[in-house]
Design a protein around this nucleic acid. Sequence first.
RNA 1: GGAAGGGUGGCAGAGUUGGUCGAAUGCACCGGUCUUGAAAACCGGCAAGGGGCAACCCUUCGUGGGUUCGAAUCCCACCCCUUCCGCCA
Length: 429
Amino acid sequence: MIDRREFRKSFDAMQAQLARRGAGVVADGSAWGRARKLDVRQRELKTELEALQAERNRVSKLIGQKKAQGEDAAAELAAMQDVAIRTKALDAEAKAAEDAFATILLEIPNPPHASVPDGNDENDNVEIHCWGDPRQDAVPPHWEIGTALGILDFEAGAKLAGSRFTVLRGMGSRLVRGLMQFMLDLHVDKHGCGEVWVPAIVNRKTMTGTGQLPKFADDLYKLEDEDAYLIPTAEVPVTNLYQDTILDADTLPIRHCAYTPCFRREAGSAGQDVRGMIRQHQFDKVELVHLTRPAQVLDDLQILTGHAEAVLQALELPYRLIELCAGDLGFSAQKTFDLEVWLPSQNTYREISSCSSFGQFQGRRAGIRYRDENGKPQPVATLNGSGVAIGRCLVAILENGWQADGSLLIPAALQPYVGGQSHIDVAVC
RNA sequence: GGAAGGGUGGCAGAGUUGGUCGAAUGCACCGGUCUUGAAAACCGGCAAGGGGCAACCCUUCGUGGGUUCGAAUCCCACCCCUUCCGCCA
């Protein structure tokens, strides 16, 4: 969430930054467009209420003193009865105004960082660099490769749960298990991340802390009998590990990695990537989460992105790194680099990791703070990125490791994690 | 799910005949004295959020209601934690 004080003091500057996401973001009817009026209203009522409360407190104290000394306080008592009634009414009004403002604040996206390139959508994203040699020969789509090898079973997934669910068999399952282990080991042993294992169900407050709620409820699976949700990414529980806490500055930066399953309703993506396992309702991911000092956040974004890149390099998967333009940025993000892995069947790069800085946006929402040099609590800066999405990584391994005879080469770095096997042969049956 | 106990500042922990309690005390932390330096000891400071140039004011003792001129303290509901019982991977 944006900073209230900055909102008032630097309204125009903030609006200019927000507008880079698209004109609609600061339009009259938008959250931003309505926020200013609500803020003024809320402060007016609060000022009025506080004056009344001050009067009430003053006289109440006096009544207490008089009574303690055995004096008569009937006059004060009578006068205060009316004040009490007015205070109660005003309090309700002020609270409603504050709630309205607070709610609207939660729906205003993070202003892009000044360094983010201009642009309207994904077509305006900027390529930073490429890595590896993308194979150019004809390769079948991963669902054909996987089905032929007998390791992907889309029919079983559909039977059990519906579309966008997949069953993995044999080496398919083992590859996923191996990938998870491989990625975690890399981040823990080589990158110094602290591994955590967290709940895949979280409450509303936690979902709000990182920005999924209130605005994106439609993307989430909600439990029917409880005010709880299935996580769409480990970012949610891992970042919120520190919600409502004040961290000692010398504990920063904090770097975590975590494996979790992820659940997304994929509302609004009907027709996209319906075949295969690019876009699933349930998928697995190893996530990287950093908490750091705000001044350091861009340096940490480089580090975090580097950790994600290391995964693809170790697996010898060609990819490119792009920076999202202002118009393509996610709601909570201030600056984002995407890693896109090469998928030869589509002759294109597809997102496999998204690494973002959130500035203090999430820290402010979730109440994650640290004490600065002056001992004053400040919201921490947060970052996260996939390191990396396991399902899509499996897709990339299938397509990039496919051999013309139908067999599959397993990346050398992964082989120790799948029982030393170097390839998967065509199913003979 | 049932029973009992409990949720207070960064942490620990007082405070339940309602009233100078935003809250004793200890630890941690910051500044100072002392010391060659450090430790110890001693002195001082130290909750968060909001409003105001400031003096100062308001809010917050799990959450939300209620009673009252006034609630950390009384009443109601809910949430969470601990222990015991039940159930269970």
